[in-house]
Amino acid sequence: MNKEIIKIEDLKREFTMGNETVHALKGISFNIKEGEFVTIMGSSGSGKSTLLNILGCLDKPTSGTYEIDGVNMKDLSRNELATIRNEKIGFIFQSYNLLPRTSAIENVELPLLYNSKISTEERRKRAINALEMVGLGDRLHHTPSQLSGGQQQRVAIARSLVNNPVMILADEATGNLDTRTSYEIMALFQDLNKQGITITFVTHEPDIAAFSKRTIVLKDGSIIKDYKNHTVLSATEQLAGLPQEEHSL
C-alpha cells in the first residue's frame, strides 16, 4: 500500500587501507516504506556509520543498488548527490551542527538557501512553520548559545523538516542529551511520524529503539536482525513516568 522510499539490495562498501581491504558492509538488503520509523542499531564498528553515510547520499556504495524515492544514486555525480540531499533528505546530527551566532530562523532557512526554486518569502514562511512544528515558535530569533541542548536539537529537527524531505535521517540525535530531554525529542519524533514523516534513526541505545516501529540490527557489516516492534513505547507516557525531581533541575 505505502510507497517504498528506500530500496537497498546487496549493498557492499569496501575501504582500502594500505594493502588491506576492509569490508564495512558485506551485502545488505532492506526497504523502507513511507511513514515508517526505523532504528538502525549496532555497536561501533558494525558498519552503522557507513550505512548512514550511504543512506544520506554522502558516500556511494562499492556495489549493490541504493534507490531513494525512485532515483538510483549509483549514476549520480557529486553535484547531483548534493541536490538529492537538498531535496529529499533531512539530516539531524548528534552535535546539532547549528551555525554559531546565527538565529534559529536563519539556521532553519539554510537548506532552502541552496534551493534556487524557493523565494525569500516562501523560505521565511517555511522556516517559521517548521520551528512552530517543533515547539519553538517563540524562539525564532534566538542564537544557539541562547538555547538549551534540547532546544538546539529542536532547531536542528526544524532544519531537517524545512525542505519537506522524503525521509529524516538522524544520527545519534539524542546522544548528547539527558534522559528527560531525550524522551522529549523522541516524543517529538513520534509526533512527526504520526503526521506521516518517514524517520530513520541510527543509534546504539536499545531504549531509544523501543520508541520506533521497526529495528534493524547490524553486526560486522551484515544485518543480523530486522524486526517489527509490536509494542511501541510512547515517549510522552515515559516522560510522565520519570521522577519529578529531575524535572525541577
Partner: peptide
C-alpha cells in the same frame, strides 16, 4: 570546516 560539511550535507554543492 564543520560548517562547510554541514552546508554540503544540506545540499550545498562544491561550486556553492
Amino acid at each position: 570546516t564543520k560548517e562547510i560539511g554541514l552546508r554540503m550535507a544540506v545540499g550545498g554543492k562544491g561550486s556553492d
